[in-house]
Design a protein around this nucleic acid. Structure first.
Lengths: 192, 192
DNA sequence: GTACAATCGGAATCAGTATTCCGCTTCAAG
DNA sequence: CTTGAAGCGGAATACTGATTCCGATTGTAC
């Protein structure tokens, strides 16, 4: 039997951590998370063995939401818009909360097997949406998943760390989207 | 009179720091830098009051090089290629070494007045190159400096943290460049 | 060659946080 | 209502890594 207070506290910790991490990123202190959850540090550790584990739980939940969104878009949206909408969704998510994923990575915290699965799923979801978009001619055919991942990561990181206003982000994404469209005959030759 | 060994050591520290920081980024330890410079930690501190100051010195030097490059390109290159070449240069620099600037920023280390000047210079250099490129029709007119900064930062960060091969970076930049070209009549309507 | 000041090296110190520990409290089964 | 187990709070501990200190060196002026 799971004690009711334990369940309640776990939820409080998770909620507080999501907020604090969103605000302060990786440098947030465990004390602070505990305090905001109205709980002692010991309690945080009862539920999450380590700071890293706590992060992982939160990031994992967020990725799951995004994966759901990807599936939903693929089923419901037009192929020519699904890909772009998902791209925007990921960037918006990064802008709102701190993604942490890359921060974790650059901090040398390595991704666990469990997370590796999610990473694969995310890749596949993107690949599917991209393929659909390319099939209907909404995205040029000479870009592959690696380029998309680089663009998505770049856009997310910029949105995450910078202090850009919403309109700037929108216009920036518009540029990216235009670059991803099929090449038109009128475009001037690429610079050296 | 500056003692010859002091000058020599300062140079050794700077060189070692550039390498170590390039390899390990912000998490590099002072001990490690000292060791690689073949010097004691105390010596590092004699020349740079603090870890942050050491970083600042290195970043500052790099930015100066980039600023020179911008000036050179503006004077020598065609307006339609100068902007793009500079953009690529910055990204390449970020990929090779770790830029650290954003890392520093996200780590809460704030930019000093001196650095603020460089930041302004960089902005101006970019603005100049952009204006030239737009004047000759190489870049669409509806993007401004903020969008360029967002794109440049995103591309640099992605190049810096990711493990992308050179060709992937090139193709990704090609997409960005295409997005920055003037809109052509044939392009399909933008997704919602 | 000597003297003195500037530098060195690197062990010791300090500081900031994650993590552990344990006596106290609360839950829920009987 | 009692009781044992599970959970709690938060002070104490452990660690990591930046920064300081000082006796030992080394460079330069005379």
């Amino acid at each position: 039997m799971i004690r009711s207070d334990a369940a309640r506290n776990r939820a409080k910790v998770l909620a507080a951590a999501e907020i604090v991490l969103g605000e302060q990123g990786l440098t947030a202190r465990m004390d602070e998370i505990a305090r905001r959850a109205g709980v002692g540090v010991g309690t945080v550790y009862r539920h999450f063995a380590t700071k890293e584990a706590l992060y992982a739980a939160i990031v994992s939940a967020r990725v799951d939401l995004l994966l759901d969104e990807a599936a939903r878009l693929r089923a419901a949206a037009e192929p020519q818009t699904g890909f772009f909408r998902f791209f925007a969704q990921v960037v918006a998510d990064a802008a709102r909360k701190k993604t942490l994923t890359d921060a974790l990575h650059s901090a040398g915290i390595d991704v666990k097997a469990e997370q590796a699965g999610q990473r694969t799923q995310m890749r596949e979801a993107l690949a599917d949406l991209l393929r659909d978009a390319q099939r209907v001619g909404a995205v040029r055919l000479d870009v592959g998943l690696p380029e998309i991942l680089a663009l998505l990561r770049g856009a997310s990181m910029a949105a995450e760390t910078g202090d850009y206003s919403g309109p700037v982000i929108d216009r920036t994404l518009a540029v990216l989207y235009d670059g991803l469209r099929p090449l038109t005959p009128h475009a001037p030759p690429p610079p050296a």
